[in-house]
């Protein structure tokens, strides 16, 4: 019996997972909120403490493949920054970043009546990674002579008084790759700019060590981090809705893992008895 259960068509598991994700959407079922993770709260608090008008930089280092996890964070963060009348500067180390920045910020800016060039700017993509971050430590306007819309950055009101990292209140790297490490190594440590990160859950495990050392002051972990941040800023978003599906799918996977393990050990015991 166990052998049949362990080796059944895996497409049945795909169907079960699909149903587990779909049903909460169809029933509009949401879960009550638990305790906010300390790493999410610390990022929220850091933004709350910035004086009005302080420039905050978000690095959009993700692409369409990780959008479901990171974009809810980006929207909630953009909402928090712009609603507090802080200046928002979007940069990116990856080629898909400029479009991700526009997708996340434009609806939020429209909702809050914020103007491009005055309240926020998308500086776009520049190659170079470490070299670019080092150059920004000297001069952000020299690293970005134009923004993503080809406007000279020197003429943008949002860039007034912004020379280098000394003028940035906080850098938040939203990433699906190793980009936060690059930011820590080449921006935080040499120039001591405050840094936080929001990453996909796969990547999150790699970044907890930077919280221990103070190299990151906050960390958003996947869709859960996004849902928590949406709750903190009081904005209904995709993160909270997605967490119900996430929880049902997790329960299903836990049950499948338990069944798989019981089956494995039962079969092994039978085999050893036969020997």
């Amino acid at each position: 019996m166990w052998e049949k259960l362990l080796y059944f068509d895996r497409r049945i598991i795909f169907l079960l997972i699909g149903a587990a994700v779909l049903i909460p959407f169809l029933t509009q079922w949401t879960l009550p909120h638990g305790k906010i993770t300390a790493t999410t709260q610390s990022l929220f608090d850091a933004i709350e403490q910035l004086p009005v008008g302080t420039p905050v930089m978000i690095s959009f280092d993700y692409g369409p493949s990780s959008m479901p996890e990171v974009e809810p964070m980006a929207k909630a963060l953009a909402y928090h920054i712009l609603s507090r009348n802080l200046r928002l500067m979007a940069v990116t180390l990856v080629i898909t970043g400029p479009q991700m920045a526009d997708r996340a910020i434009i609806p939020v800016a429209k909702q809050l009546g914020k103007k491009y060039g005055k309240d926020w700017v998308n500086l776009g993509f520049k190659p170079g990674g470490a070299v670019l971050l080092t150059q920004m430590g000297e001069s952000i306007k020299r690293a970005y002579p134009t923004d993503a819309r080809n406007n000279p950055t020197i003429k943008l009101p949002v860039m007034t008084g912004v020379e280098n990292y000394d003028d940035i209140g906080l850098v938040v790297d939203l990433a699906s790759s190793g980009a936060p490490t690059t930011w820590i190594v080449y921006a935080h440590d040499p120039y001591r700019v405050n840094m936080a990160a929001g990453v996909t859950a796969v990547e999150a495990v790699d970044y907890y060590k930077f919280l221990q050392t103070g190299q990151l002051i906050g960390l958003l972990n996947g869709l859960k981090g996004a849902a928590e941040y949406e709750f903190l800023v009081g904005r209904k978003g995709f993160g909270k809705l997605g967490m119900a599906s996430q929880s049902v799918a997790h329960l299903l996977i836990i049950v499948l893992v338990i069944i798989g393990n019981i089956g494995y050990f039962t079969i092994e015991r039978h085999r050893s008895r036969r020997r």
């Binding site: 997972i17 959008m67 996909t200 859950a201 996947g222 869709l223 995709f238 997605g242 599906s245 799918a249």
Partner: peptide
């Protein structure tokens, strides 16, 4: 550590599926 990594990986992959289903619906 590997267990925590695997748990996070499951959450990430399910999130991607959730994103696509939300888009389609």
């Amino acid at each position: 550590g590997f267990g925590a990594g695997f748990g996070n990986t499951v959450m990430a992959r399910i999130s991607l599926l959730i994103g696509r289903i939300e888009f389609l619906l």
